[in-house]
C-alpha cells in the first residue's frame, strides 16, 4: 500500500534525525553547539514524525470519509507549528540566558557579543 510505505519512510527519517539530535546533545563540547544539535535536529525529526501521522490520517480520511480524521490532520499541523515556533524562541532564550550567566562559548574563534559588552 502506498500510504503505508510513505508513512514508513517519513517515520524512519524522523527517527534518524531525532537520534542524531540526541547524539549531538551528548557529543558536542559546549552549550551553544548542543543547542544547535538539539533544537534543529529534534524539531526537524518531530516534524517528520508528525507528517507520518498526517499521511496516515489522510489515507484513512479517503477510505472512510470520517470527519474525525480531518480533525486529526488539522490538529497535528497546529501542533507542528506550535513546536517549531516555541522551539526557536526557547532556544534563543536559553542561549541569551547562558551568555548572560557568564558562560563563554568554549572552543570559539571569535566572540563579538563579549566585545560589544551587551
Amino acid at each position: 500500500m502506498l500510504a503505508d510505505s510513505i508513512a514508513f519512510v517519513l517515520l524512519v527519517i524522523g527517527l534518524i534525525f531525532n537520534a542524531l539530535g540526541v547524539i549531538g546533545l551528548l557529543r558536542f563540547p559546549d552549550v551553544y553547539t548542543r543547542l544547535h544539535a538539539s533544537t534543529k535536529a529534534t524539531t526537524f525529526g518531530s516534524i517528520f514524525l508528525c507528517l507520518g501521522v498526517v499521511v496516515y490520517a489522510i489515507a484513512h480520511y479517503f477510505w472512510t470519509s470520517d470527519s474525525q480524521y480531518l480533525m486529526v490532520i488539522v490538529h497535528t499541523i497546529i501542533a507542528v507549528f506550535a513546536l517549531a515556533v516555541t522551539n526557536a524562541a526557547g532556544s534563543h532564550a536559553i542561549a541569551r540566558a547562558a551568555h548572560k550567566s557568564g558562560q563563554k562559548p568554549e572552543p570559539s574563534v571569535v566572540d563579538r557579543l563579549s566585545e560589544a559588552g551587551l
Binding site: 538539539s38 533544537t39 529534534t42 514524525l49 501521522v53 513546536l83 526557547g90 536559553i94 540566558a97 550567566s101
Partner: peptide, 26 residues
C-alpha cells in the same frame, strides 16, 4: 556540567514527548 546544559536537555525531552503523544494518539 552547567545549568543551561540541563535546560537544553529538558527542552529536548519535551519536544520528544510531544512527538510521542501524537504517535500514541494514532
Amino acid at each position: 556540567p552547567t545549568n543551561p546544559d540541563r535546560v537544553v536537555a529538558a527542552d529536548t525531552i519535551n519536544t520528544l514527548t510531544v512527538a510521542v503523544l501524537i504517535l500514541l494518539s494514532v
